[in-house]
């Protein structure tokens, strides 16, 4: 999902840049205040770890292979602020050293992957974990957050493509959401397996407040990151998801870009070439809703398979029973 330059227009890059700069500023501030000096090298090592983990491929059906993104993994292991810093570092290095992901599109990439995917995923994880507060619930929460964060990040990415006027929302949304609903399954399974393996060898590392020692103001964190994510959703996604026929025109009008918005890519998008596309949006949304429920059920099933009943004694200290 690394967007190269030239696909998003200047307006989208600037908007996403401002949003991710704010998130990054907050993350750096929080990390600097809360991170003990001995954990500073961990930030660099964790970034290198995420990069190395991305290099490991696993086989997917049909001879293709995928790799993990590690957004949720990182935020579950390190906490949201540190995860923003770590994923951003990975994205900067991929952009400047490997030309993967654009220079101007860096803001959009940081917003999608560091803010929406890993921080958004982290709060989904916390929400589910709160309702299922046991080791199995933790695994189910990780699995569901891994899936949901991938899909939400893809939808925001589709919103950015549509906001740029590059690709019409119905096309971008149907394609990105449906593909990432499948990719998300792989991400969910691998993230869950990794968290399970970590909990079996070093359960102490899973408690990120112990690992990074960020205990102050988690509510403020939630407020700031939640505000930024909802701002991004409101800007990039909601204009298109609402029932008005052309969200792009309306946003352009509201934001005062009306005159310049369509000059670059002259595509007012009157109608779609293929008649099925308009209904495809509705179909994708419906599939998304059903898919979310199924994914949640699957996450619970996965956690049951991975942690069989006889290990229930370990519920107080996760992983102790399997730690042999």
């Amino acid at each position: 999902m690394h967007i190269p330059d030239g696909i998003l227009n200047g307006r989208t890059c600037a908007t996403a840049g401002v949003l991710s700069a704010a998130a990054l500023g907050w993350a750096v501030r929080q990390t600097r205040r809360e991170l003990p000096p001995r954990k500073i090298p961990l930030m660099g090592l964790a970034s290198a770890f995420v990069f190395a983990a991305m290099m490991l491929n696993f086989p997917v059906a049909g001879g293709t292979s995928g790799h993990m993104v590690g957004g949720v993994l990182c935020s579950v292991l390190l906490g949201p602020s540190a995860a923003v810093l770590v994923i951003t570092t990975v994205l900067i290095v991929q952009c400047l050293l490997f030309a993967d992901g654009g220079l101007l599109a860096l803001g959009a990439n940081i917003f999608n992957m560091a803010v929406v995917c890993s921080v958004g995923g982290y709060y989904i994880y916390r929400l589910v974990y709160r309702f299922l507060p046991n080791p199995r619930g933790r695994l189910a929460a990780v699995a569901f957050a891994g899936w949901a964060s991938t899909v939400v990040a893809a939808i925001v990415c589709a919103g950015e493509l549509a906001f740029s006027g590059t690709i019409a929302w119905p096309v971008a949304f149907s394609a990105m959401a449906s593909v990432h609903m499948l990719i998300g399954i792989g991400e969910a399974v691998i993230t869950t397996l990794v968290i399970l393996a970590v909990s079996q060898t070093r359960p102490d590392l899973l408690d990120y407040t112990a690992a990074v020692s960020i205990d102050a103001k988690p509510k403020l964190d939630f407020l700031i990151f939640g505000l930024l994510i909802s701002l991004g959703l409101a800007l990039f996604v909601s204009p298109f998801a609402c029932p008005w026929p052309d969200g792009l025109d309306r946003t352009a009008e509201v934001l005062g870009f009306g005159a310049s918005a369509h000059r670059v890519m002259a595509a007012p998008i009157p109608d779609y070439l293929f008649p099925g596309i308009k209904s495809a949006t509705i179909a994708t949304s419906a599939a998304g809703l059903v898919g979310t429920l199924i994914a949640f059920a699957l996450a619970v099933v996965l956690s049951r398979i991975l942690l069989p009943t006889h290990s229930k004694t370990a519920s107080a200290a996760p992983g102790e029973a399997q730690g042999e």
Binding site: K39, L42, A46, L56, F58, M68, L193, A197, L205
Partner: peptide
Amino acid sequence: RRRIWRNLATVVAQLFIRAQSRSERIYAAM
């Protein structure tokens, strides 16, 4: 095929654990 996923997860988890303990050694060296 099933073992591949399990093994990969173990490798990734080990990689994180080693990165973590390496970071502590690096801090001492710094």
